[in-house]
Amino acid sequence: MTDFLAAEERALLERNGLGTFDQLWATQLQAVDEPNTGRGGSSSVFRLDVEGQGFYLKRQTNYLTRTLHRPFGEPSFAREFRNIRRYQQLGIPALQAVFFGMRKVAGESRAILLTRALDGWDDLDALLSRWDQLGAAERQAVLVACGQLARQLHGVRQVHGCFYPKHIFLRPDGEGYQAQLIDLEKTRPLLFGQRDRVKDLEPLLRRASVWNNEEVRSLLAAYLDQPRDAALVDAWLARLSARRDHKGSR
């Protein structure tokens, strides 16, 4: 695979000596958190600011994912990059790739994924931490945005696989909110209908424990495009509650 460099940022990165794999690999930056050292390798995330524009630079060494199609493994960023591009093609709001490349260097498998920073957006976890400080209209707007995002995702037959509050980013938009997704590595096609949809949604509701029953109804109403008191909303609420109880008892 040849390196990918988004046309919109090419001039900016090249002007600052950041337009190639080697240049991005050699750039000295402070990691935003501790490296992930699973899978026999390492994966690190860095903040990169260039002429007032923010990016996240992710670098991996021998951090491989093995699948039936790739039994010898590939950098997990390769799968995430493919999914970013798929989301873009399908019109699912998600983070945007700026650069992607892979190299074999001295027996090491290296990969880089550069994405635009979501400056001005809050992850849902941050909003949940101050949920009791939000007004009723703002809470409703957040719930509707999350429900519509899930509907859009499942409507084009994709399962996120990690539909957690920390992976849903929102920002105010008029009287409502815009929402988009990050961390697309585990995305896969929706194969098993309602079972896949319930499995994808339930972790969000389990982690958003501050939501009461009526708030969950609001999210499901937006997801199903139904009134909050619809029988279909009742049915989905029962299925999700049953799965949450089952998961909690394990």
Rank of each mutant, 00 (worst) to 15 (best):
M1A: 14
T2S: 15
T2E: 15
D3C: 13
D3P: 08
L5H: 02
A6Q: 11
A6L: 11
E9W: 00
L13S: 06
E14S: 15
R15D: 09
N16S: 09
L18G: 04
G19V: 06
T20D: 03
D22M: 05
L24P: 02
A26N: 09
T27K: 12
L29S: 08
Q30H: 10
Q30D: 15
A31R: 00
P35I: 08
N36F: 10
T37D: 08
S44R: 05
E51P: 13
E51Q: 15
E51K: 15
R59M: 12
T61A: 13
T61E: 14
N62V: 08
T67C: 04
L68A: 10
L68N: 01
P75Y: 04
F77P: 03
F81T: 00
Q88D: 13
G91C: 09
A97Y: 05
A97K: 02
G101W: 08
V105D: 12
E108H: 15
L113Q: 07
T115K: 06
T115F: 10
T115W: 07
G120T: 09
D122K: 03
L127E: 03
D132S: 12
A136W: 03
Q140Y: 00
V142D: 03
V142H: 01
L143T: 03
L143Q: 01
Q148F: 04
L149V: 07
A150K: 02
V156P: 02
Q158I: 08
V159L: 06
H160N: 00
C162S: 13
F163N: 01
H167P: 00
I168G: 07
L170K: 02
L170H: 02
D173H: 13
G174C: 04
G174S: 04
G176P: 03
G176R: 00
Y177C: 10
Q180M: 15
L181I: 07
I182K: 00
D183K: 02
E185S: 06
P189L: 09
L190S: 05
L191F: 09
G193M: 06
D196T: 04
R197T: 09
V198N: 04
V198K: 01
D200E: 11
D200M: 09
E202C: 08
E202S: 11
P203V: 11
L205P: 03
R206S: 12
S209P: 01
W211F: 14
N213K: 11
E215L: 07
E215P: 07
V216S: 07
R217K: 06
R217N: 03
L219Q: 01
A221W: 04
Y223F: 11
Y223A: 11
Q226L: 10
Q226W: 05
R228M: 14
R228E: 15
L232S: 12
V233I: 09
W236Q: 08
L237Q: 13
L237D: 01
L237W: 03
A238Q: 11
R243A: 14
R244G: 13
H246P: 01
H246G: 15
H246D: 12
H246E: 13
K247R: 12
G248Q: 10
R250T: 13
